[in-house]
Design a binder for these strands. Structure first.
Lengths: 224, 224
DNA sequence: CGTAGTTTTGAGTGCGTTCAAGAGATGTGG
DNA sequence: CCACATCTCTTGAACGCACTCAAAACTACG
């Protein structure tokens, strides 16, 4: 069950020195720490800041009135979340683990007047976002449960895995419901598919959020 | 742009003389005409230009090696297509009807140095793109065939319909396969669902690409 | 006309779902 | 530390929606 804690909202000190990230002046960068399951922003909130993930993992979600949810994306370090549409956030963002983000003014995304180098980086991030979303369309629209699950594990392995000789180990903070809502499946199907991958000797499950990939090629091929 | 449930804003008014280049020689606006089924760019091509649709309808597609297709978006007048990732097009673009586009240099998307006003518009278009894609995720991942088809028709009606008193008429250039690949269904399912909507008296099919919506509310409700 | 492509309709199947229950984690208070 | 409550994950059984396969109806075009 997802907990919405009203006391989580915007406990943010006023922007001290927002401005020069150019030249990597780290001291001037404003950051914000998040606890696991803490909310960063909600759908419909007015956009003042966009966030660059530096630690931990965030989750971007959209919810239908009847409760159906779709996880749009997971935000890993290096990712930027909070792109506005018509001045409003278009999805909800929560931390899946303790996390830290760099806070950027939305002004620097929209205009390059103040900080051209940061602006350029943010625009590039938006373009990357479009590209990766296009890939995800194929996943949601045209792939089977097996292919979706294998894709998910494969990508996560590429991004966060550490080599164990022939094998690769990685952990992830999202639970089965998060994965299901990301892939357009049910928790039961995700669980069953994981079990199938385990019984096929493609992976080992240390626990429900820790995986060792035994056969990268087979997993990659199954991702199709 | 993605056909989405969010009501669209800021569609460009007059097509031919695009108001983008304020204070510049209008004759300098470069356009390109396309015949039906003509290709504009392919996945993997190097991006030099991005395109603003002024007439007709474009189709953005991604294809898997085994032939499975996903239509990412349909480009209607006012939409911008060709956002690059790592300098390459990430999808294939074809005209569904005779069409015309305004050709913009990718430089003006990436940097505001040359034409700040155009740059601002292109960045805004990219942000709208992200927002609309997020809506489409919900469609692909969480909606039934009925809901998908009703959404599709409902949005198309909103965007291109002309009022016939209580009813609304509109036409569209995409065939059943295009619609199926857009919604993550098969042609048979799209066809069956259209038939169901017809028998339920929500729509009338003048021909396979011309619809009269008889009950907007029921259609909208079915879109969920 | 005939041929090729698209759309519709029919019949049957299967994948992922729903519903249900048990197993495994996690957390809290005594 | 255990007992208890709660949540998550897994597994089982059965269903149903959308799929596949197949063929007929309709369109477009030479």
């Amino acid at each position: 069950m997802y907990i919405s804690n009203a006391s989580d909202v915007e406990t943010l000190p006023a922007p001290t020195t927002c401005g020069a990230l150019r030249g990597q002046n780290v001291n001037a960068v404003q950051t914000r720490a998040l606890k696991a399951s803490q909310n960063l922003f909600r759908e419909g909130d007015e956009v003042r800041h966009i966030y660059e993930v530096t630690h931990g993992v965030l989750r971007l979600t959209k919810v239908l009135e009847d409760g159906r949810r779709q996880v749009i994306a997971f935000g890993y370090p290096g990712d930027i979340v909070g792109f506005p549409q018509d001045g409003l956030y278009h999805a909800e963002c929560d931390a899946l683990s303790t996390a830290e983000v760099v806070v950027h003014s939305v002004t620097d995304l929209v205009s390059g007047d103040r900080n051209p180098e940061l602006h350029r980086r943010l625009v590039q991030a938006a373009l990357r976002e479009i590209g990766s979303m296009q890939d995800h369309f194929m996943m949601l629209g045209r792939k089977s449960a097996r292919e979706k699950t294998a894709s998910f594990l494969s990508v996560l392995m590429e991004r966060t895995g550490t080599s164990l000789g022939a094998y690769t180990h990685f952990e992830f903070p999202m639970n089965r419901a998060d994965i299901a809502d990301f892939l357009g499946l049910t928790v039961e199907t995700v669980s069953r598919t994981m079990t199938m991958l385990r019984k096929s000797k493609l992976i080992t499950l240390e626990n429900s959020k820790s995986v060792i990939v035994l056969d990268q090629k087979a997993l990659h091929d199954m991702a199709a």
